[in-house]
Amino acid sequence: MSEFSLYLLQQLINGLTIGSTYALIAIGYTMVYGIIGMINFAHGEIYMIGSYVTFIVIAGLLGMGMVSLPIILIIALVVAMFIASTYGWTVERVAYRPLRGSNRLIPLISAIGMSIFLQNFVVLSQGSRDVALPPQVTGGWSFGDPSLYEVSLSYMQVMIFVITIISMTLLTLFISRSRMGRACRACSEDIGMTNLLGVDTNKIIALTFIVGAALAAIAGLLLGLYYGVVNPFVGFIAGLKAFTAAVLGGIGSIPGAMLGGLILGVTEAMTSAFFPSEYKDVVSFGLLVLILLFRPSGLLGKPEVEKV
């Protein structure tokens, strides 16, 4: 392969890595929108909390002398998903459920308030400075001709791909095969009708928040380990990017969120590859504007597409 194609391959790997984590967070936005038609702006904060919990658990387990990395990571993942889901459920119960049925703007404002609250809550309890974790998953493969360009693929990147694919597959199976998933799909079709048919829609909505938060916690663990740094403000920009991904793919559509995340990640990497990297955000948000102008329902957001 030529130097150029190796370089392109490297940037593609980088873009897919970051894109898959965008996709994980984007699902939380898109599922909530699909069912109750609101944008949960506090979702980025749930991701940030997931990252913090991961750091605390890993540091705690290492401090207790545990050495097996896979076990540490599994414990951290389970704890982070559980705590983030608790936050997701509580936010819905406290800030959104009492406002159900009111004007659409009101829960939106409540969501922004919740986001500010969670951010400041973490600032107060954990401090506003960067918290760092030493690299846990190190090493990787490198291939390509070293005299031309050496492509590196780290174990961490592979771990991000694999865990994202597993999570997405499980989510798709859950939505398409399980009873709860069927109820979710019914809610997104017509929530009033579903209610009349005897489904406890409040329960389904709460479930949506829990699932979204759990996926955000997975992203929090993966990105926390990948970057090794977290601060209380990472949720805002990550949430914004994931929201863009969700809109790009068609908000309300789960495959759309997956696709949107990957497209956004690759676009960012390719922009940085061939233009100065300060234009990265200009291009990705420019893309969002174009999509909204020419295809407001997003790439896969057609009405006949399965929505949740």
């Binding site: 130097e3 490297q10 360009y149 970057y227 960012e268």
Partner: peptide, 21 residues
Amino acid sequence: MFEGVTPGDKDFSALIAKLKK
């Protein structure tokens, strides 16, 4: 190369790939 990064950004893998190239 003379380039800017965004303060608060966490992912610099694209930049590093370019520096390497």
